[in-house]
């Protein structure tokens, strides 16, 4: 039994966390190259680029949960809505 067995890793979750880590690194690099100032968009408060990403991702989690609660259809639908949501928040948030 591997020493990490207690964490019960699976390939999909490993990919998920690798993506999260990659996102953090990418956002850091982007911020170093093009620093982001808070700006006011559709959202009620001024947000920086990172905050808009955070709000977008948090929203995606809820879109998936609501989708799973309402329908048995494939998660691809939720993924499509999520993509639109994420782009809108990043662009106009």
């Amino acid at each position: 039994m591997s020493p990490l067995e207690w964490m019960a890793w699976t390939t999909p979750t490993a990919i998920f966390f690798a993506a999260v880590a990659a996102m953090l690194v990418t956002m850091t690099l982007i911020s170093l190259r093009w620093p982001s100032l808070p700006r006011k968009g559709v959202l009620p408060m001024p947000t920086t680029r990172g905050e808009r990403l955070y709000i977008g991702l948090l929203g995606i989690a809820f879109i998936f949960l609501i989708w799973m609660g309402l329908t048995d259809a494939t998660l691809a639908g939720a993924a499509g809505i999520s993509l639109l949501w994420l782009i809108s928040v990043l662009r106009w948030g």
Binding site: T13, F64, G69, L75
Partner: peptide, 27 residues
């Protein structure tokens, strides 16, 4: 927290005994 995420997509019977269930627990 990462461990909790891993647990949430599997049915854990014991150390080394687990089955992938995907979104089932969330549904």
């Amino acid at each position: 927290l990462m461990t909790v995420v891993n647990y949430s997509v599997q049915d854990i019977f014991g150390p080394g005994q687990r089955v992938w269930v995907g979104k089932e627990w969330y549904v």
